Simulated scan of single mutants.
Amino acid sequence: MGQAKNRGTLDQRVAQAQAKLAANRPEKLVCNSCGADVTQINPVSTRGLRGLEAIWVGQCDCGHTTFAASGEPKAVEAFFFALSQDTELALGRQDKDGGGHDKAGD
């Protein structure tokens, strides 16, 4: 438990975590349904989700939700597999800049 003190004060650790999260934030998401840019992107807590560094969610004007995740490849794959169990979701892959948004399975 004393290891946290070695990483700095609580305020310093919070600032470090926020900076790491901001560095992983994609510039935009591309809607997996209509292909429009989604710029209103919000972080989702990854607390307790081993292997996931960041999860982002955006709501498109067309009403669909788009997710982005980063971390260990197997953890990211498991996250999107879990989401795919909802048959109404359309999953795709994209780069941090929003490119490469082909739908999964295409």
Results as ranks from 00 to 15, higher is better:
residue 73 P to W: 07
residue 40 Q to V: 12
residue 51 G to P: 08
residue 79 F to S: 12
residue 43 P to K: 02
residue 48 G to N: 12
residue 37 D to T: 05
residue 80 F to C: 10
residue 84 S to V: 03
residue 49 L to A: 08
residue 80 F to N: 08
residue 62 C to G: 02
residue 55 I to S: 13
residue 41 I to P: 02
residue 85 Q to P: 06
residue 88 E to Q: 12
residue 62 C to T: 00
residue 83 L to H: 05
residue 86 D to F: 05
residue 29 L to K: 03
residue 69 A to R: 04
residue 36 A to V: 05
residue 54 A to M: 09
residue 69 A to F: 04
residue 31 C to L: 01
residue 88 E to G: 10
residue 83 L to Y: 06
residue 87 T to Q: 14
residue 78 A to N: 15
residue 78 A to D: 15
residue 61 D to G: 13
residue 50 R to V: 14
residue 54 A to H: 11
residue 75 A to G: 03
residue 80 F to G: 10
residue 76 V to S: 09
residue 86 D to Y: 01
residue 86 D to E: 10
residue 82 A to Q: 15
residue 75 A to R: 00
residue 77 E to T: 14
residue 43 P to Q: 04
residue 85 Q to M: 14
residue 87 T to K: 15
residue 31 C to I: 03
residue 29 L to A: 06
residue 59 Q to D: 12
residue 34 C to P: 08
residue 76 V to H: 10
residue 38 V to I: 15
residue 59 Q to Y: 09
residue 81 F to P: 00
residue 70 S to A: 13
residue 79 F to H: 13
residue 31 C to E: 02
residue 56 W to G: 01
residue 73 P to I: 07
residue 72 E to Y: 06
residue 58 G to P: 04
residue 27 E to R: 08
residue 54 A to V: 06
residue 67 F to I: 06
residue 58 G to W: 03
residue 87 T to F: 12
residue 86 D to R: 00
residue 63 G to S: 08
residue 48 G to E: 06
residue 50 R to D: 13
residue 51 G to L: 11
residue 28 K to M: 09
residue 36 A to Y: 00
residue 66 T to I: 03
residue 78 A to E: 15
residue 88 E to H: 10
residue 55 I to E: 13
residue 64 H to W: 04
residue 82 A to W: 11
residue 89 L to Y: 09
residue 39 T to L: 09
residue 81 F to I: 11
residue 89 L to E: 05
residue 51 G to E: 07
residue 30 V to Y: 01
residue 86 D to M: 02
residue 34 C to W: 05
residue 46 T to W: 08
residue 41 I to D: 03
residue 46 T to M: 11
residue 87 T to R: 14
residue 44 V to A: 11
residue 53 E to Q: 12
residue 76 V to N: 10
residue 70 S to R: 09
residue 75 A to Q: 02
residue 84 S to T: 01
residue 64 H to C: 05
residue 28 K to I: 03
residue 32 N to H: 11
residue 88 E to R: 09
residue 78 A to V: 05
residue 77 E to W: 10
residue 48 G to S: 10
residue 80 F to S: 08
residue 58 G to N: 03
residue 31 C to A: 02
residue 86 D to V: 00
residue 55 I to L: 14
residue 43 P to W: 01
residue 79 F to M: 13
residue 53 E to C: 05
residue 30 V to P: 03
residue 81 F to H: 14
residue 70 S to W: 09
residue 41 I to H: 00
residue 45 S to T: 14
residue 38 V to P: 06
residue 77 E to P: 07
residue 30 V to G: 04
residue 62 C to Q: 02
residue 53 E to V: 07
residue 46 T to V: 15
residue 85 Q to N: 13
residue 58 G to D: 02
residue 61 D to N: 11
residue 78 A to F: 13
residue 72 E to L: 11
residue 77 E to H: 14
residue 61 D to K: 09
residue 45 S to K: 00
residue 47 R to I: 10
residue 45 S to W: 02
residue 75 A to H: 00
residue 89 L to G: 01
residue 60 C to N: 07
residue 38 V to C: 07
residue 86 D to I: 00
residue 84 S to M: 03
residue 55 I to G: 13
residue 41 I to W: 01
residue 47 R to P: 01
residue 51 G to D: 07
residue 32 N to G: 15
residue 51 G to V: 12
residue 45 S to A: 10
residue 60 C to P: 05
residue 86 D to T: 00
residue 78 A to M: 14
residue 60 C to H: 04
residue 62 C to K: 01
residue 56 W to Y: 10
residue 27 E to Q: 13
residue 60 C to T: 05
residue 29 L to S: 05
residue 74 K to A: 15
residue 41 I to L: 04
